[in-house]
Amino acid sequence: MTQKSFHDQHVTQLSPKTEPTPNTQRESLAAEVRKLSFWYGETQALKEITLSIAYRKVTALIGPSGCGKSTLLRSFNRMHDLYAGNRYSGEICLFPENHNLIDLDPFMVRLRIGMVFQKPNPFPKSIFENVAAGLRIQGVQNKKLLSDRVEQALRDAALWEEVKDRLSQSAYGLSGGQQQRLCIARALAPQPEILLLDEPTSALDPIATAKVEDLITEIRHRFTVIIVTHNMQQAARISDFTAYMHLGKLIEFAPTGELFTTPQETLTRDYITGRFG
């Protein structure tokens, strides 16, 4: 409840153009990355990244392939810990507690931070059970609570109207775009503190992409979202802040409008004007 008023206070105040750099806005942050480095075995994929994630805003990570944007995103819910030989140094602090999530148990981190992957990956179960999966994993058994949350999440993911009559059917019967929105609903149902989207529209056609973008715009006032995208127009359309990465380094981070209109770095300028990438 306190967070709600907290948010209301800031929503009018923060508009991308006039906003001061996010670093000074500590109390409005959902998380802060401090000097984060990451290694796949011997290969360093992230080099001392420092970045703030604004509370209930959309932050986009862009950059050419191999720049480390997905690696950074997957660090937020410690997906790298699933595979041997990966190593972090530095911090990702979650607010308001100011806990470094690199030091927390990865399974606990993932209970708090949701993720949607490049390719839709629903479970081979019913639509209802897919959305309820995260809640069941947290031990929720109350039927009423489950069905309320599932409905809410499906509404948030703009899928409710399409599936409300066939919640018990297999998720594999949905189209690709619907499956991806189902995965978003699945991630939203446990009400994560941060929602990670890893190129969520790269496997979708333009119409399905538009639907996903619309829903992100709808939920942005209630969830903190970090999105990796290789599509600059998408970043410009839906994000409040954009970070440009190159070869594992954070080159530039600014409110989206500024970054796209007046980039400060040559590398950023070259990338957004299409000289490479």
Binding site: M108, L111, R112, Q138, G139, P190, Q191
Partner: peptide
Amino acid sequence: MRASESFLRRRA
């Protein structure tokens, strides 16, 4: 939403 402490203990 946070999972309850007792559930997490049981899960572990």
